[in-house]
Amino acid sequence: MAKVTIDGIEIEVPDGTTILQAARMIGGDIVPPAMCYYSKLKTSGGYCRTCLVKVSKGSEKDPRPMPKPVASCRTTVMDGMEVLNITSPEVLEARAGVVEMLLLNHPLDCPVCDQAGECHLQDLAYEHGKAETRYEFPRREFEKIDIGDKVQLHMTRCIMCFRCVKVADQITDGRVHGVINRGDAAEISTYIEKAIDNDFSGNVIDVCPVGALTDKTFRFKSRVWYTKPVDAHRDCPTCSGKVRLWYKGEDVARVTARKDTYGEAEEWICNSCRFEHKKTSDWVIEGPTKVDRHSVISANHYENLRLLKASIDRQRASLPHGDKVDLGTGALNPNNEEK
């Protein structure tokens, strides 16, 4: 076991736990945002750099601070480690920089994007970004391509998180999905636009944090916030059959995996459940679910965030630059705001 302190909150975790996982065990505002890490995908994480944190004390044995911010999703805790996330102005500044980079070439076409309302990039931009961009050049664009008859790839929106590549690698066999080209010309591609023909290929849609991989059977059917999530299951010969149905009125508009607080699929589902079972009679309904984290869906998400942000800004302003603050989560609870 290792004892780690994140933003002044101490927790004991098993050896080998990453800083991000430890933060998720604590929960709440001190959890760094993660755009590329996905706990169910091996070797995921490390790419987007949104989860950067500062290690102000390496460990009990070697208390030296780490010289650079580290990716919390890929750094394992050491006994006695001390980590600063939202209590470090330096980290918040670095993160704002990363968010700006992620949005640099993003088309910001949320009004016509199917992901709007459940997009992690939208949330991230709102929570950690700045209101305006300093980028004045034309943005990168790609042609839309169909990968198979059910999935569309709109590369222009991609943030290169590599999650879909890991899905293709790890849960579908005979991978035909990867990255071509280099640098900011890099793109996700399938082998000569080959249809991904595999029972589990649809999961790339669920792992994509943005609207780059979308469900063609749901295209433009509805904005997600007009649909109602309901958990359901069926006896499926291929997967667990545990899914989330999204109702528009009486109709099942789409089927997805069930996702946890951090937007990760609880269990992978097969293409048959996802694309071919869209009648209520196909399913045993378990009851409506509350989707708690996601921006537009959860009531007042943005309002709470605004208060939280104001509170952090105020604390930040009152500090000499570079100083660390010791905040209990209580101080950051928006409900304590007006005290």
Binding site: G46, R49, V98, M101, F162, G183, D184
Partner: peptide, 12 residues
């Protein structure tokens, strides 16, 4: 030209 494109700050 030479950035591999893995991480966002360098790629962009």
């Amino acid at each position: 030209h030479e950035s591999c494109g893995q991480c966002s700050p360098c790629r962009e």
